[in-house]
């Protein structure tokens, strides 16, 4: 009863307000359709951010004009340069042909490169699993996590090729230095990825198991790893793909063997564009196979776990 009365009263109030408004402005419709210009400032205000943005754009424009006007072409015909490059690409991509090795040998070398990627990912994954546990904030004391995270960030900041060259001082240029260097970088990359996956598990779940008397190792294997296993696997696959690309580069740059070394010889030693094209196609094919494979596995894992 009371409620009904209240509503009636409210409705009356609103109606009164509306009619008084119409008295002042004749009607909403008129106000809406009025053609009088209203004095309004610019829509976008000139604040610090937009001034900075405009300065940067102006600076880059000036720099670009200056660059092209003062470029020293050193008697190279720019147009000819472009056409020659285009012809080179055409030979590489349209007439691939291997004459210094058979298809079987090429596949063997691909397997060597894949082996390099697999081994470094495996070593990296195992070590990173332990370090990742110690770097996860819900599992280890803050000092330890900060120490490991800082250490790992420094390793990650230096590119893989530099680590390989550093270890080449001790191990000699070759596959040993490549494996140590690439594993080193994989460890730091995967430690960060793993520890962040572990941190996804709520602190309170760990508290619940601690309250029932479980110890650290039991909690890690019964709660933390089962909760994050899909993340762990997808990060590891991603690193495997990165390591495959790295392994090709290491074959060329650090003499680690495999298909990368063939590529280096074909390009830098024999100047054989058709062979470079062949190897490029081979590498692309392997990369696509890896991508399809890992996507499939990830899909299956997400369904089952």
């Amino acid at each position: 009863m009371q409620f009904k009365e209240l509503i009636v009263q409210e409705t009356n109030n609103i109606c009164e307000q509306l009619s008084s408004y119409e008295d002042r402005h004749t009607s909403f419709k008129e106000l809406f359709l009025t053609k009088d210009t209203i004095n309004f400032g610019p829509i976008k205000l000139l604040d610090r951010a937009s001034i900075a943005m405009r300065t940067v754009i102006l600076f880059l424009t000036v720099l670009t004009i200056y660059f092209f006007s003062t470029l020293d072409y050193q008697s190279i015909d720019v147009l000819k340069g472009f056409t020659d490059t285009f012809v080179n690409f055409k030979t590489m991509l349209l007439n691939p042909y291997a004459q210094r090795f058979t298809l079987g040998e090429a596949f063997y070398n691909v397997v060597v490169t894949l082996g390099l990627a697999f081994l470094t990912t495996l070593i990296g994954g195992i070590v990173a699993l332990l370090l990742g546990l110690l770097a996860a904030q819900n599992l280890a004391p803050k000092q330890v996590t900060n120490l490991i995270k800082g250490f790992v960030a420094i390793i990650r900041a230096v590119p893989t090729i530099l680590w390989v060259l550093i270890f080449a001082v001790a191990a000699g240029l070759g596959s040993a230095a490549a494996i140590i260097g690439m594993s080193f970088h994989s460890i730091s990359y995967l430690t960060k990825a793993y520890s962040e996956s572990f941190e996804d598990l709520d602190r309170s779940v760990i508290e619940a198991l601690m309250a029932s008397g479980a110890n650290w190792w039991q909690i890690v294997f019964q709660a933390v790893i089962p909760s994050s296993v899909t993340y762990l696997l997808s990060w590891t696959f991603l690193r495997f793909e990165i390591n495959f690309a790295n392994a090709v580069a290491m074959g060329a740059a650090a003499g680690a063997g495999g298909i990368g070394f063939d590529l280096f010889m074909a390009g830098g030693f024999y100047f054989d564009l058709r062979e470079v094209g062949f190897i490029t196609y081979l590498i692309i094919a392997i990369a696509i196979v890896l991508e399809v494979f890992s996507t499939n596995i990830k899909g299956k894992l997400q369904k089952s776990i």
């Binding site: 709520d202 309170s204 779940v205 508290e207 619940a208 601690m210 309250a211 029932s212 008397g213 019964q222 709660a223 089962p226 909760s227 776990i305």
Partner: peptide
Amino acid sequence: LRTKIGMIFQHYNLVDRL
């Protein structure tokens, strides 16, 4: 000692994926 004391929580605190 903790094995003798069970505990249950507002947000259940179970491992969801198991």
